[in-house]
Computed example of a mutant assay.
Amino acid sequence: MPGDMSGPNTTAGAAPSPFFLLGIPGLESLHLWLSLPFGSLYLLALLGNGTLLFIVQTEPSLQEPMFLFLCMLSLTDLVLSSSTLPKLLAIFWFGWHRIEWATCMTQMFFIHSFTAMESGFFLAMGYDRYVAICDPLRHAMALTRAVIAKVSLAVVARGVVFFLPHPFLVGLLPFCRTRVIAHSYCEFMALVKLACTETAASRAYSLSLASLIGGFDVCFISLSYGLILRTVCRLPSKEASTKALGTCSSHICVILVFYTTAAFSFLAHRFGHNIPHGLHSLIANIYLMVPPSLNPIIYGVRTKKIRERMQKALFCRQR
């Protein structure tokens, strides 16, 4: 286990000093056992999202806005899980706690920006469901390939532009007490807490940004589903209502998984000063790993077209 690393942020002519990740503090004796569920989740995320991408790209009937946005979500999930889990497993298995400055900053940027992208794609998928159910005659015209490309580019640009300053903000901070991070990955709030200077402005910026992006997306997703529910309640038959809601059920499930864990992590940073570091780190890892693992399963089981395509592929292989 690394000890406290003291010293200034940089020395003359030298690169910034590395940080040291503790993994999940307080549960060091269980690290090897914890690697089993986390490793399984990572494998599930790789296989599930990879399979989902393959199915959508190879099946012409799935070239619809909802499934194209789903591909974007799967790519985001793959980047998110691959940004954190390999390092976590390296800590658990080999005790590789050291992480270089550049790697740490890159990991931090990827985690924050791609989390924002995931939220943005949930919003885009909510809008797709709103148009498909509330104004179906405009669906094909409102969400053309060009519009989908522009929306996806806007979601990616939002994540990159808003969170690009984070590594530079951390780079301006002096670290003269310790460089040991009580976490399993480089996270902005965990890093600024190590600085030996006043960081209220940096923390306020990051928390405000996260709350504004999350709040904006949640509000408009809720508005979309409120309008969808109103439209469904006005449908003439129960069968039509059930079918309409069935097309949204997968999206609602993954949204609940994502935002529930995200809300806990956000509130823990803002108010959870008495929450043990180990519990906070454990929940933070679950927040980044469970949605990428569950998303393809939820969509695969609850989306009829994807389920039929998977069954067809399995049946052909068996023959």
Rank of each mutant, 00 (worst) to 15 (best):
V170D: 04
H112N: 13
A195L: 02
V156H: 00
D128Q: 01
V290N: 01
A263T: 15
A12N: 11
A201F: 14
L191N: 03
K193A: 14
P16Q: 09
M72F: 08
L34T: 10
A201G: 06
M72Q: 11
L53V: 12
T144N: 00
S74V: 08
L88W: 06
L172Q: 15
G171P: 01
S83M: 06
M1P: 11
I148Q: 10
H31S: 12
A263C: 13
A132L: 12
P167N: 03
R234H: 15
S211V: 11
K87L: 12
V232H: 06
G215L: 06
Y42Q: 11
T106N: 13
I275D: 04
L235C: 06
L229G: 09
P167I: 05
K87M: 11
A140T: 06
T231G: 08
M310I: 14
N295Y: 04
M66R: 13
I286E: 01
G272A: 04
L194I: 05
R319D: 04
I55Q: 07
H251E: 12
P292L: 01
C71T: 14
K87V: 10
L207C: 05
R309G: 01
H269A: 07
G95T: 08
Y225W: 09
L21E: 09
Y205I: 02
M125I: 02
T10N: 07
A262S: 14
F67A: 07
H273N: 13
R203P: 00
L173E: 03
E100Q: 14
L191G: 03
V232L: 06
L73D: 10
C71Y: 05
I181Q: 00
D217T: 10
V161S: 02
S211D: 09
L173H: 01
G126H: 01
R145N: 07
F175W: 05
F110D: 10
Y42R: 09
W93C: 11
A124Q: 01
C176I: 06
A140S: 08
I252D: 06
L41D: 10
S184P: 02
F175T: 04
P276S: 04
H97V: 03
I99W: 03
L288I: 15
G246N: 14
C71N: 15
A90N: 13
G278N: 08
I181Y: 00
E28A: 15
